[in-house]
């Protein structure tokens, strides 16, 4: 236990030294970009993933409603991820499925399958600031993280819940984004995002995302079990709890098309 802790300290220490030496050489923008690239690079090569997601929507009076979603995600080289989400609860939307092709730049391609009508509908994803399933998450918040989606600036380093964090400002490059900026806390040891503040088009604080209970999978990839989004303006919140993360399921492109969307259940 002590040895493990010590090893972590040493690794953290060496990362600190590395970054300290880099810090003098570059502008805050370059540093921010470098950190974002490192975070992205550390999370590459997971190939595919499946997970179950429990979504709890809470209004300002504390009333709750629950959604249950299963997800399949495929990593795509040089482009955004492909994902298929299937709704299990509430019962009246069971079988509804959502297919999304994220892209590094520009709008994502998104389709929704409505089982009662046996109909696939294309979603205008330019409307990316719209809420996902009535939650405090917008479609944009759930899209995969890609370097080109933001411009970056490192503003400071400070202590956070697990060690020291880089504090980065991210400015969306897409004019259809619902935000002027995001402020992100990334831990220096493992480049995990711990907290994100979202600023709306009027540049006032809209939402805060807290990401907790990280676990490492396949010895490399960190995934949170608990994600909480609080809307400071509406006082509503949405909690996501992920479980049953599984990697290496042998998913391929052929698992993500309109036929697989229609038969999802």
């Amino acid at each position: 236990m002590t040895i493990k802790l010590l090893t972590t300290l040493i690794i953290t220490g060496s990362v600190l030294v590395l970054n300290a030496s880099a810090a003098f050489a570059a502008t805050a923008e370059d540093q921010g970009l470098a950190i974002a690239k490192e975070a992205k690079a550390r999370d590459e090569g997971w190939v595919d993933m499946t997970a179950s997601m429990n979504m709890v929507l809470r209004n300002k009076n504390g009333q709750e409603s629950v959604r249950e979603i299963r997800m399949q995600v495929l990593e795509v080289a040089n482009d955004g991820d492909k994902s298929l989400s299937i709704f299990d609860r509430p019962r009246d939307v069971k079988g509804t499925a959502f297919l999304s092709f994220s892209h590094t730049s520009g709008a994502d391609d998104q389709w929704l399958y409505l089982p009662a009508l046996k109909r696939v509908k294309r979603i205008a994803s330019r409307n990316k600031s719209g809420p996902f399933m009535g939650s405090e998450f917008s479609f944009e918040d759930l899209s995969s993280f890609e370097i080109d989606k933001y411009n970056y600036k490192l503003i400071k380093e400070e202590a956070c819940s697990i060690g020291t964090c880089f504090v980065l400002e991210q400015y969306p490059t897409d004019k259809n984004s619902g935000y002027t900026k995001r402020i992100v806390w990334i831990d220096k040891a493992e480049y995990r995002t711990l907290k994100t503040d979202f600023y709306d088009r009027k540049n006032s604080l809209l939402k805060t995302l807290t990401t907790e209970q990280y676990q490492q999978y396949k010895g490399t990839f960190w995934r949170p079990s608990s994600i909480k989004m609080v809307n400071h303006q509406s006082k509503k919140s949405t909690d996501l709890s992920y479980n049953q993360y599984q990697f290496g399921n042998g998913l391929s492109d052929s698992d993500f098309n309109k036929n697989t969307l229609k038969r999802a259940r």
Binding site: A107, R122, A124, S125, R126, N127, N176
Partner: peptide, 9 residues
Amino acid sequence: GQAIMDSWL
């Protein structure tokens, strides 16, 4: 057919 142009379908 359908085409998405900004917020128009």
